[in-house]
């Protein structure tokens, strides 16, 4: 029973971690709390589903195509709505609030756009992976194992991007010291646009995986967004390892609290935990104090 709950928590946690990664990247690089992020997740699922439906491609081929699509969308939204505000956002509270207002606006528009285009009815998305594995008395569908594998691949890919490429180094420089990065002539706008692209791609992957496990529908972005908030605060806003550990931890806690304490109140526990973490360690478990 406990082992099964832990395994379930791990699967849930993998998706949570994946959802939180793109969100925390944007915060780290651009100090943007992106309320529209959950909608990118949702759009990602719809993009994948649409590619599968119209081209007949299997899930694993359609997913990368959709990831490129959401990455582009994410960059376009950044350039159109956020870039004009960013300079103010680093220097003033007012600017920071403006950025949040704009992403809240995007949240509304993207969700309504999805409802208008695809309707509100939930849809199935089939990954095409069947069968189950049993280890001891722990049952795990192959589909769920694939979810963990994809999450692991994307995390490895992200680390490679951050630590082995020039743009990754530039990104880390900007996240650590914006003025310094500007002073040595880094094109911060370009790097931030790139981060939005990566974040969009991650959102698409997370959303599509969620879609295969549950259903694809316009309202599916809300819950992962809230989870992403909890996770990044838990792990430290802007921290990549924090998002991974935080995601897994929240997945596990939710499953255990749901199984052993109260299913109805499991989300309440995570939120209370979040507030406790914030008050005791405002920069998060992995974050640096500002």
């Amino acid at each position: 029973m406990l082992a099964q709950q832990l395994a379930n928590g791990l699967v849930l946690g993998s998706i949570y971690a994946l959802s939180a990664l793109g969100f925390t990247l944007i915060f780290g690089a651009a100090r943007v709390v992106n309320f529209a992020y959950g909608e990118l997740l949702m759009l990602g699922a719809f993009f994948t589903l649409t590619v599968m439906t119209y081209s007949g491609l299997p899930f694993f081929v359609a997913l990368p195509v959709a990831m490129v699509g959401v990455a582009l969308l994410s960059v376009v939204l950044f350039l159109l709505t956020l870039r004009p505000l960013l300079r103010g956002a680093y220097t003033s509270l007012h600017g920071e609030l403006q950025v949040i207002l704009v992403t809240l606006g995007l949240l509304y528009i993207l969700r309504e756009a999805a409802i208008i285009i695809w309707g509100t009815a939930p849809r199935q998305m089939d990954m095409g992976v069947t069968g189950i594995q049993m280890v001891g008395d722990v049952v795990m569908t192959n589909q769920r194992l694939v979810v963990i594998a994809i999450m692991a691949m994307l995390v490895v890919g992200l680390y490679w991007l951050l630590y082995r490429t020039r743009i990754g180094k530039a990104l880390r420089a900007i996240a650590q010291n914006r003025e310094g990065a500007l002073a040595i002539g880094l094109n911060t706008d370009r790097v931030i646009a790139f981060v939005f692209a990566v974040s969009g791609a991650m959102a698409c992957a997370a959303g599509s995986l969620l879609g295969t496990l549950y259903a694809v529908e316009p309202n599916m972005g809300g819950a992962p967004l809230l989870k992403a908030f909890v996770i990044v605060i838990f792990g430290g806003l802007g921290s990549v390892p924090g998002a991974i550990v935080g995601g897994l931890a929240i997945g596990l806690i939710e499953n255990l609290a749901g199984a052993y304490i109260s299913f109805a109140f499991k989300d309440v526990f995570t939120f209370i935990l979040l507030i406790a973490v914030l008050l005791l360690r405002p920069a998060g478990l992995f974050g640096r104090a500002q």
């Binding site: 709505t81 505000l85 403006q98 207002l101 704009v102 809240l104 606006g105 995007l106 949240l107 509304y108 528009i109 309504e112 756009a113 208008i116």
Partner: peptide, 11 residues
């Protein structure tokens, strides 16, 4: 959608 657009435009 109108609320969202308004919020962005006004901001």
């Amino acid at each position: 959608a109108m609320m969202g657009a308004l919020l962005i435009i006004v901001t």
